[in-house]
Design a protein around this nucleic acid. Structure first.
Lengths: 184, 184
DNA sequence: AATCTAATTTGATATATATCGAATTAGATT
DNA sequence: AATCTAATTCGATATATATCAAATTAGATT
């Protein structure tokens, strides 16, 4: 859930809430005092304090008539420390499918039978297509050039280009002159 | 200006922008790739990248057809470090007038001539009024009880209460039994 | 020069939210 | 118990902004 992380930043993404945090860093204040200091209505201050409370940045203590809020120093420190270590950003991409780009390119360039409509001219797209084509070869196994061409012909008639690019991008290897090909 | 600080948090206060930062922490991506990964339109990605660029979190480099964005590691680190040290929060309250609360209470409780309509019953308000009244005394100078009453009578007829509260809150001092009063 | 392609900008729209005033609630004081 | 006070909640409104589609721009390739 990166929701928690987003909420944390949202809580601080408002000038008046930043001022509240800054004031509470000095000492505790009641809602009424904060309202006077920031020239806002108590209901608005309540709204802001609710958001800050939600992410654990402040907490309230009832004191006679007043609700006195104070800064949760340790929570603030722990959050900023995690920010610094950057571990939070990795959790943010937990649900991102990293193969989406390749898949989109493959959809654009292949027919229902899996063969290529054309060979992409652009580097990034060509790379995505080659990563797709190379899966037809078994890792570690050695193939003769003739066998390579036979397999590639299932994708596109220009087998020479495909073969050359596969080697050029390091997806396939070739031994010496005229030797076998293999995928690592 | 806390505007810069607010912008920084706003830049991170969106789930998709957090994902972009997380992805760029891995390696650089083009707008098109990010659009495919996050399943958003390129124009939306541009919008987000503009915000991130504005606060210096990412930067772009044109590469053939593509605009490749990368994370500005040092900027991120410097910002989070300042955040941790908390110096930014003090700057956020630079333009907050810390006496606003007292002034509000004073306006509510005084007449045009500066005298008190009533003596506040609530602690916080009483304190604000006493801070106001005590200014009538010169710091360091010693006053007899009679002189103190004379000065306080300009504020309220119940000079005994005012005198007692001033001492109670530590705003005035009294020496021994029946001695002089002074403000530090 | 002419043409492509990705990126950006612009305009429109829908959602989120900061603010206030009014009504309500929770607690304390009398 | 009755009353008072600060805080919160609710309803309404105005502003901000995330998103997309369409138009434009900037660069590279031919």
């Amino acid at each position: 859930m990166s929701d928690e992380l987003v909420s944390f930043y949202k809580a601080l993404a408002d000038p008046n809430r930043l001022k509240i945090v800054g004031l509470l860093a000095g000492h505790a204040y009641s809602v009424e005092e904060l309202a006077a200091l920031l020239k806002l209505k108590p209901s608005t201050i309540s709204h802001h304090l609710a958001k800050l409370t939600q992410v654990g940045l402040v907490s309230a203590k009832t004191e006679s008539y007043y609700n006195v809020y104070r800064l949760e120093e340790k929570a603030l420190e722990e959050k900023t420390r995690r920010l610094l270590s950057r571990e939070d950003f990795s959790t943010a991409i937990a649900d991102v499918d990293l193969d989406t780009y390749d898949r989109k390119v493959i959809t654009d360039y292949t027919r229902k039978d899996g063969s290529l409509k054309t060979i992409p001219a652009q580097r990034k797209k060509l790379e995505a297509i080659l990563r797709y084509v190379v899966k037809a070869f078994e890792p570690g196994k050695r193939y003769s050039e003739k066998k390579v061409n036979e397999i590639l012909s299932g994708y596109h008639e220009d087998t020479a280009s495909l073969r050359r690019e596969l080697v050029g991008f390091g997806l396939m290897n070739r031994e010496g002159g005229g030797g076998d090909y293999w995928r690592e």
